[in-house]
Amino acid sequence: MSLYATRRRRNSIATSLAWAAATFGLALLALILTSLLYEGIRGLSPAVFTQMTPPPGSQGGLLNAIAGSLVMTGIGVAIGTPLGMLAGTYMAEYGRYTKLTMVVRFINDILLSAPSIVIGLFVYTVMVHPMGHFSGISGAVALAMLVIPVVLRTTEDMLLLVPGSMREAASALGAPRAHVVGKVAYRAAKAGLITGVLLAVARVSGETAPLLFTALNNQFWSSDLNAPMASLPVVIFQFALSPYKDWQQLAWTGALLITVAVLTLSIVARALSAGRRKS
């Protein structure tokens, strides 16, 4: 009987620890989200979307930062997506077992979780330093380098999920290889491919480290890609560490905007891939 009692006691200790861990973890994460909501919504006003970032001690908004983020993310995704997708296509459709695929897959997995600040250093040495000044375009390139691994990985995974019999059927009808890939495999994997791009956008839209010394920051409106450009994460970083209350408030509001954007993107991506799995 005592053996049973010991085992039962041990079990209840272990399970209650697991319960505690789950409660603790979830409560902590909920706490972060609620304080983010609370502090962020307080500063939410139309001015945030219509005015430029203010000098210390005065009112203003985040317009130039939001625009800068959108522009750099847009260009980054526009550069990174085709590269990642084509490379993923090669790996899944043409060279499934070649050495090149093995090496690229391994290295891509490393890049996928490599520290993003190192990517910033890389872009600094190959673009910013030779050009002699910080610029929006080098920020976009840094973001593109973070887009590539995400898109490449999802493209490869999604194309590998397409049944080989579909490709064989298309080939049997006489379709050339490029058509088999473009009109059959891509179509079958469409939802998954879009998911990959959305996830990539979600990933880079909150990235700060690679922008710190590529795009730098800009207090004013700038649409010149050859000049320093503001972005939401960098503005949050700068404003949060400042001693000015107005700036800190804007940092919270910016953080809320990013979080909402990222969560929305990931939920849409998730819904897309879930819809695909069902059908």
Partner: peptide
């Protein structure tokens, strides 16, 4: 199309090589 996709794969490889080379340099 085949060459383009292969080139993309090679470029991805070169980029990572570039990261290491540029950091060392």
């Amino acid at each position: 199309f085949f060459q383009v996709t292969r080139a993309a794969a090679v470029i991805v490889l070169i980029i990572l090589g570039g990261v290491i080379v540029s950091l060392v340099h």
